[in-house]
Amino acid sequence: MKKNRNLMILFAVLLAGLIAPLVTGASGAGFWVEVLLGGLMAGVLYSLVALGFVLIFKASGVFNFAQGAMVLFAALSVARMAEKMPLWAAMLMAVAIMVVLAFVIERLVLRPLVNQDPVVLLMATLGVTYFIDGFGQTVWGSDIYEIDLGIAREPVMILQSVFDGGILINKDDVAATAAAALLVILLALFFQKTKTGRALRAVADDHLAAQSIGIPLNRIWVIVWSLAGVVALVAGVVWGAKLGVQFSISQVALKALPVVILGGFTSIPGAIIGGLIIGVGEKMAEVFLAPIAVKAFDLAGGGIENWFAYVLALLFLLVLPEGLFGEKHIDRV
């Protein structure tokens, strides 16, 4: 099929771009692996935010613009509450806050707008975004706050025997990756193996039919927004610990958009793999493409990291509109 061929070409180009620096000797193996790992770690964070998008889209068909704001809000809650109590207590409290938020959003926004056009719901979540952003500042303040996970920040040198000069990695990055992996496994179990997961998938497919077999729509929405809230919390804490809790988190969260386009709006594995591809892609582009741009065209060379993800997503949209793992729609005509 033509589509498949295009996809193969796209992947071949990406792969070629990935290993080019290594083959052409533009970088040492150790440095290349370091950049790769750095990209993967950043990708995990994108994946976490994208996961929140996918959860809500899967279960309610709503594209939740507010996911980024929820990440910031959760991170702010943890950071500020951790000043007065142990971190674990602050995290538990923050989970409770996110669940309450889910209840409020369901009651005040989703329920009155049930059966409206998707675009109406999208606008509604835009409103929710600005509300949560502002409300977070009202309650918790607008400075830069820190979250201390108690993991040493200094990088560790590993594999010195394999690569010349070894590879530097951060312990907190490794912890973040492990947390993300655990979360993904739990979510996959939940969706595939529990009756609530089945109910969530049912609601995603057909509201009316789901209700007719006795699935309570409102409760399902509260559950799924709570889940998205918890995912946002994990993303917010990991991110906040790395970069500090600040407003820019909710902006960076927009990187999850190209991730879900790439991975497919309805796929949890898609969100993960999409995040990793984008994370690695933009780091590689920034580190290895920028110098070429500077040398060949006498450009300034910076900022590739900012647009690379979106261009990549655009390419995927052209070749594979439903994303790598999205549900294929087979319509009978």
Binding site: K193, T196, R198, R201, I213
Partner: peptide
């Protein structure tokens, strides 16, 4: 009005939803 993304078996299983009583955690951890 079937759940198009799900298998025949899963579709029919949703019909049992109201009759299943185990809690969320019990199910998730089998």
């Amino acid at each position: 009005a079937l759940f198009k993304g799900m298998s025949v078996l899963d579709n029919i299983m949703t019909g049992r939803n109201l009759r299943m009583k185990s809690g969320l955690l019990a199910q998730a951890f089998r």
